[in-house]
Design a protein around this nucleic acid. Structure first.
Lengths: 196, 196
DNA sequence: GTCTATAGCGAGATAGAC
DNA sequence: GTCTATCTCGCTATAGAC
């Protein structure tokens, strides 16, 4: 799509990422969109609505993407591998949007904040449930399931903080490394070996 | 200390944490400090200088704290355990400050930004060097040292995102869990066991 | 060292022509 | 659907009295 609304949204994503939401002015977004700032209000009722649109779209795309990754997968371990791979890949592919989703929630008023957080909690439950189930049923090593799931989720999300688009490793390569770190090492660990 | 400057700084930490740097007005800081906004300028030349003071103090305290944690520790594995414990504990004890340090760097002008990032890079090198050295010398399982160190550092830093001061687990308990997750599982892993 | 008062600016949003 | 013009507000920072 190349509608004006899409152009505005793209410009806002770039600016919110680079300058932060509050430091970005409607005039900045307008300039980068090639229109005047008053014209933005034909497409969005307010600045907050642009942010909310970005946040909700991103979270819904992420949810849909992970559901697609889980399609047809049977075992708990393979499901865990699929969600880690998918989560990391998405965070490489949509770096700017997910960083905004992580750091600009304070720009939302109460109702919008609640709506977004509900969506995010539902998404994160997929991870937590898999880890809890895997531990309960003995597929993963025992441990504090809550803390382990926070550790895994934050570690995978933070890839967006250091990933570089044209860096040494591609998103797919990083996803593979994380899949191994999380599933083989963090979750299925054996008693430690002496390496030296 | 209870000087006016300290009171201003504390108020700013709370507000930058709750509302973000750009959404916080000097009048907000003044109100919470019990003075008028003009009086702030006697103690700080600008709003950015308050932010810079918070960021640099936090990073220097963190560096000093981790150095103290390493005092007298001999082996690479024990050093790794010490820095993970220390890093996580500090991020529980200074939750607001470290979250500001993570998300408000865009409020800094170029020179201040460079100064802060140099300090942060020096700190992070302690982690990276330990992991690289441990892998090279065979104390830890082989792997991509760069990615592994990013994974560990971001995972430990993100504790500040979910830690709750009066929650189920104390900062010390979480530090212990992370020490195990990072060193025993992530770094010293054996070939995976079949749990079921 | 803190105050009142205000300068100077740019923000988000709206009105109404085209 | 985009424009120019403008309203209204609140911001950072300063001047100068006490």
């Amino acid at each position: 799509m190349n509608t004006t609304k899409e152009i505005i949204k793209k410009a806002a994503i770039n600016l919110f990422y680079k300058k932060s939401y509050f430091a970005t002015a409607m005039s900045n977004i307008a300039l980068d969109s090639g229109i005047r700032k008053a014209s933005i209000y034909y497409h969005y009722p307010s600045k907050e609505d642009i942010l909310f649109d970005i946040l909700m779209t991103t979270m819904k795309e992420l949810t849909a993407y992970i559901e697609a990754c889980l399609e047809g997968i049977e075992t708990i371990e393979d499901k865990m591998r699929a969600v880690v791979r998918g989560h990391v890949k998405f965070h490489c592919d949509h770096q700017k949007e997910v960083l905004i989703s992580d750091s600009e929630l304070r720009g939302l008023t109460t109702n919008n904040y609640k709506t977004f957080v509900a969506q995010r909690n539902a998404y994160e439950k997929t991870f937590q449930d898999l880890i809890i189930l895997g531990m309960d049923q003995g597929y993963f090593a025992p441990g504090d399931a809550k803390v382990t799931s926070y550790a895994i989720l934050t570690m995978c999300t933070s890839v967006a903080n250091w990933f570089k688009d044209k860096g040494r490793l591609s998103g797919n390569q990083i996803s593979s490394i994380y899949e191994e770190l999380v599933v083989t090492r963090l979750l299925k660990e054996s008693p430690p070996r002496e390496f030296k």
